[in-house]
């Protein structure tokens, strides 16, 4: 973290969406009723040395931070779309999550839709892009140790499955419930 701002999520795509040209289309698409927010998040580390060194400014200066505490480095749908793990190549979405999601108008997907296909769906083929973020969260959990991801695989599956079946995830210990959009926001919060 070399500066106190970090570019991350955008509403209708994600940080790793490919070329700036595509983003330009999204931003310019005033005609389409598609809201786009590209957020540069303020990361004001408190305390004295707020600007911990990072790769580009300070070569390979690394601070004395305790090596064991790595932050959670979940990866976004855009990342997984471009580097999809071989072993999940033709795994079906419904086999992992016990059901399918819907397209922009609420029409359920084909039953044999694969995880990889979901990542390539456009806005109107994956309502709220909930499917894409469910796949990303699942893959992050499968690589939990390497990524320091804070959720186990079955936690992710349980959350997604509840949304697919009753449209809402209800957390047992707190009673808090989240709809598909809120679950997507939560998953997005776990990406680096």
């Amino acid at each position: 973290m070399a500066n106190d701002m970090d570019k991350n999520t955008e509403l209708m795509g994600d940080k790793h969406s490919p070329q700036p040209a595509r983003r330009k289309f999204l931003i310019k698409s005033a005609a389409a009723s598609v809201p786009v927010i590209l957020t540069v998040t303020s990361r004001p580390a408190m305390g004295g040395n707020f600007c911990t060194p990072s790769g580009f400014l300070s070569g390979n200066l690394s601070d004395h931070g305790d090596d064991h505490d790595r932050s959670c480095n979940g990866l976004s749908p855009g990342y997984w779309k471009h580097s999809f793990p071989k072993q999940f190549e033709d795994v079906r979405f419904s086999r992992v999550f016990g059901g399918v999601w819907v397209d922009g108008r609420g029409v359920p997907w084909e039953p044999d839709t694969t995880l990889k296909q979901v990542l390539h769906f456009r806005g109107n083929e994956d309502r709220y892009r909930f499917g894409a973020h469910a796949v990303a969260a699942y893959l992050n959990a499968e690589h939990r140790i390497r990524l320091h991801y804070p959720m186990e695989v079955d936690t992710v599956i349980d959350i997604v499955r509840q949304v697919l079946t009753v449209g809402m995830y209800t957390d047992p210990s707190t009673g808090l419930s989240m709809d598909a959009m809120e679950v997507k926001e939560f998953f997005e919060g776990t990406y680096h």
């Binding site: 106190d4 009723s33 809201p35 786009v36 927010i37 590209l38 957020t39 540069v40 303020s42």
Partner: peptide, 24 residues
């Protein structure tokens, strides 16, 4: 030119918006 930047001073975040989001 139809693109908006919104500075949310409380959080310090900056948002680059298209016209639809800004109008809303």
């Amino acid at each position: 030119d139809g693109e908006v930047v919104l500075f949310h001073e409380n959080s310090g975040n900056i948002h680059h918006l298209n016209l639809f989001a800004a109008t809303a």
